[in-house]
Write a protein that binds this DNA or RNA. Structure first.
Length: 557
RNA sequence: UGUCCGAUGGUGUAAUGGUAGCACUUGUGAUUUUGGUUCAUACAGUCAAGGUUCGAAUCCUUGUCGGACAACCA
């Protein structure tokens, strides 16, 4: 037997240890999105982490919507999030909402007031903020901090009943106004919000803050390891403080922080993604240029490729910036095995084969996927007029150019050798057509005399090919890190004006009826999938990613 | 000039006191009816200075650099 020693990331090590020491028998994790936007690739990392832990340690994972702020949250987001998690290939053991716990949270708040650990503060937000001062100076205690417990109890009940206006008072935990950790300077537990909640409707007009809801929700669900991103590290003492107040079982969740994903040439904050959508810089949350899960899905990424990506990038506590090229590598790797090959010409140049009978047509067998014999073969039609890629021809070609050039010979994939005899140009000198001759002996792409032809190019039969709209995507931003800005700059200054190029391509007729979502490789060009914008008049393809192109490197030198 | 966190090739991530490894990127070569794939091979790293130790990426001290925190957001 081969011993496979997988190296563990720091969270897996903690869990392994907790299991070995008997601290926990079973682990429970959770993915706790706020339903105020669509999931992005950074969330995918977190999902893969949390649900991956469940799989490797045979535990459980809950999906819990952190819906404590009704002013920003919507059902649309709840639905998209569930769809995305499922699409990524994960099942939650339980579906919960933080709002499920509003009653319990309220009771605990009353308990804290009764114990003198919370009070109603009637100061303005500005005043409260001002009294907290800054991390290097002591804070100032609120004049309401030591009001009678009964008074706080009464006011808190009135807050709940809607007797007070928004912003007029809040419930605060009484902790330490001099703490060097700002989150411990009497954090706000409840604020008044007279807003309709997507689940509880109009039952409540006070809502708990994140810090007062999150740890308790974990506790109620029996979460053992509560994994979040680094910016919550400073919240951990508060997370623990609130648990100290309610824990009677000794079984408490442990908050563990890891570094969020950053990708080159993109932005990842929900606020910025929302900006891009609402200001129409992109077509929507699922625009294929967006780093959202729905955008990647529409772009043609597979769940496997994203999961492999998450696996590859690892989990640690140091800030990181992952090259978007790694993501692209992952989808190529996956699609290379899965996608059937077809021929499609993105920038067509007409070629007439002068010694091929004008009325003749024939068919060749073509492999659907050289990486997968079981994918079978298909027939591709051929005639005297075909289209080839415009950049597969060069009038003044360097030695290393293996494609078509004047007097040169090239192989048409699966068809014949052709030789370029004549170049036809228009009045402006643009090449409009090529006249070539073919070698009938080279049928199928081999020559009986054994002469070598270095180049093989793709083509389509002009008599049977179909037109299709192809959307070529490029990175949305020109700057590697659009968040790294000088003063007076915004990330929008670095939007790539050429991130979308729409062209009309000619593709082989075998693809004429391809359904939305079909993913193929256009040989030598890249991976493409049929977009949902397709209809009976027009087929639309998205370029998922181009093939690795070592010629462009040589040509660029 | 507060508290907390972090620092390993260009980018990520392992090694948990005992040979610094893996992936991506990059270079070179082989194979190839996709300049794709595949295969081989090379380049390249422990933030710095002290200390502990037979032995330090790992432990200690100091420093340097980077990040987080001062919403009635999460």
């Amino acid at each position: 037997m081969e011993e496979k020693k997988e190296s563990l990331n720091f969270i897996e090590q903690i869990i392994t240890n907790d299991l070995e020491t008997g601290k926990h028998e079973k682990i429970i994790t959770r993915f706790p999105p706020e339903p105020n936007g669509y999931l992005h690739i950074g969330h995918a990392k977190s999902i893969c982490l949390n649900f991956g832990l469940k799989e490797t340690f045979k535990g459980k994972t809950n999906l819990r919507f952190d819906d404590t702020n009704p002013s920003k949250e919507e059902t649309e987001y709840v639905e998209s999030i569930m769809e995305d998690v499922k699409w990524l290939g994960f099942d939650w053991d339980n579906l919960y909402y933080a709002s499920d716990y509003f009653d319990q949270l309220y009771d605990w708040a009353v308990m804290l007031i009764e114990q003198g650990k919370a009070y109603v503060d009637e100061q303005s937000p500005d005043k409260i903020s001002e009294q907290r001062t800054n991390p290097t100076t002591n804070g100032i205690e609120s004049p309401f901090r030591n009001r009678p417990i009964e008074e706080s109890l009464k006011l808190f009940a009135e807050m709940k009943e809607g007797k007070h206006d928004e912003g007029s008072m809040v419930l605060r935990a009484k902790i330490d106004m001099n703490s060097p950790n700002m989150h411990m300077r009497d954090p706000i537990m409840y604020r008044i919000m007279k807003k309709h909640h997507h689940r509880t409707g109009d039952k409540w007009c006070i809502y708990p803050m994140y810090d007062y809801a999150h740890g308790q929700s974990d506790y109620i669900e029996g979460i053992t390891h509560s994994i979040c991103t680094l910016e919550f590290e400073v919240h951990r003492p508060l997370y623990d403080w609130f648990l100290d107040q309610i824990d009677t079982t000794g079984k408490r969740p442990r908050q563990i922080e890891f570094a969020r994903l950053n990708l080159t040439y993109t932005v990842m904050s929900k606020r910025k993604l929302l900006d891009l959508v609402t200001n129409k810089y992109v077509s929507g949350w699922d625009d294929p240029r967006m780093p959202t899960v729905s955008g990647l899905r529409r772009r043609g990424y597979t769940p496997e490729s994203i999961r492999n990506f998450a696996e590859r990038i690892g989990v640690a506590k140091r800030e990181n910036m992952i090259d978007v090229g790694l993501l692209e590598y992952m989808i190529r790797e996956d699609l290379n095995k899965k996608a059937n090959r077809y021929m499609g010409v993105l920038d067509p140049l007409k070629v007439v084969i002068t010694n091929y009978p004008e009325d003749k047509t024939e068919e060749f067998d073509a492999k659907n996927n050289p990486e997968d014999e079981t994918a079978g073969t298909r027939k591709v039609s051929f005639s005297n007029t075909i289209y080839i890629e415009r950049d597969d021809f060069m009038e003044d070609a360097p030695n290393k150019f293996f494609r078509l050039k004047p007097g040169g010979e090239v192989r048409l994939r699966y068809a014949y050798f052709i030789k370029c005899e004549n170049i036809i140009k228009d009045a402006d000198g643009n090449i409009t057509e090529l006249h070539c001759t073919y070698d009938p002996e080279s049928r199928g792409g081999q020559s009986p005399d054994g002469r070598k032809v270095k180049g093989t190019i793709h083509w389509v039969d002009s008599k049977t090919c179909v037109d299709a709209e192809v959307r070529l995507y490029d990175r949305l931003f020109l700057k590697e890190n659009p968040d790294d800005l000088d003063e007076n700059e915004t990330y929008l200054d670095y939007l790539n004006p050429d991130s979308l190029q729409i062209i009309t391509a000619k593709i082989e007729n075998n693809l004429a009826d391809a359904a939305v979502g079909t993913t193929v490789q256009f040989e030598r060009k890249g991976y493409f999938c049929v977009d949902k914008d397709s209809n009976s008049d027009k087929q639309v393809w998205n370029r998922t990613v181009g093939l690795k192109d070592s010629w462009s490197k040589i040509a660029g030198k």
